[in-house]
Nucleic acid binder design. Sequence first.
DNA 1: TCAACGTTTCACGAGTAGTTGAAGGATGGA
DNA 2: TCCATCCTTCAACTACTCGTGAAACGTTGA
Lengths: 134, 134
Amino acid sequence: MERSKVLSALSALAHVSRLDLVRLLVPRGDEGMAAGDIARTLGLSASRLSFHLSALEQAGLIRSRRVSRNVIYSADLSGIGGAISYLLADCCMDHPQVLACCGASARHALHRVAEGDAAPRITDPESGTPDRDR
Amino acid sequence: MERSKVLSALSALAHVSRLDLVRLLVPRGDEGMAAGDIARTLGLSASRLSFHLSALEQAGLIRSRRVSRNVIYSADLSGIGGAISYLLADCCMDHPQVLACCGASARHALHRVAEGDAAPRITDPESGTPDRDR
DNA sequence: TCAACGTTTCACGAGTAGTTGAAGGATGGA
DNA sequence: TCCATCCTTCAACTACTCGTGAAACGTTGA
C-alpha cells in the first residue's frame, strides 16, 4: 500500500464519527447498511454523514453500491487491513513489542486464519475492483 | 486503550512528517535520537520538528528524556502497539479478512510472540533497518 | 557570570477540515 | 407525469492545523 493512501486512511480514521462508522460497518461485512439507517443509528444529519462516508470511501476504507433508492455502504476489509498492515510492517518493521500489544485475541484469530478459516478473497482493490458504483 | 487516545494517535500519525518520525525512531528502540539529529535527518526546521514531536508525545507514541543539552526522543512501542491493537480488535473485531491483510511477516512474528519469544531484544538499530532517507 | 548551543514557544498568515441548511439529482410508486 | 423518498452537493461560516521566523528557555563550559 502506498504511503499517500495510508496517510489518507489514517486521517480518515482520525475522527470520532468516521471511526464509529467503520466500527458499525465492519461486523456487517459485505451486507453493509443503507446510508439512511447509518444516519439514524449514529444520530448524524444526512449531509454530514454523506460527507464522512465519501471521505472514508475516497480513503479506500469503505465502498458503496446503489440498491434501488438506497445506497448501501460496506467496509472494505482489505483497505482497512492494508492500512493496519502498513503501520505494523512498513512503519514498525513488525517489531515484536508492537506485535505483542496486539493481544491474545488477534493471536487467536491469526491461528484461525492460518488454519484456513479466513474469508475468501483478500486481493488488492486497485487491480480487481471495477465498477460497482458510477 | 481509550477511544480519545486512539483518535489522537491516529491524527498524530496522519501526517507525512510524523509518520516519517515514527519510522525513524522505531528501529532505534530505547536508544532513540536527539532532536537536532532528527531535524537534520528529515530536513525539518527546529521549530517544525518540535511541534511534530510534541504532537506525537502528547498522543503517547513517543517519549523524551533530556541528556545534557540534547533531548532524546524514542518510540513508545506500547503506545504505538496499543493504537494498532485498538484498530484490529475494538474497531475491526479481529476480523479474519483484516488480519489476513497483515501479511505473512506479521503472522510469523505473532506466532513467535504466541510461543513466548516476545520482546526480548528491542534495540536492533543499524542491522536491518531499511531507512530510505538518511 | 556570560556566551554558545540545542530546543521550545510564540505570533502571524495561509490553507484545510468540519458543520449546517438549502438546493439538486436519482429512483420508485401512483 | 407528478410526488415522495433517499442521498449528495453546494455555499457560507467557524475552527483547526500547518509552516515560518523570531524570541525565549535551559544547559554547558569558560
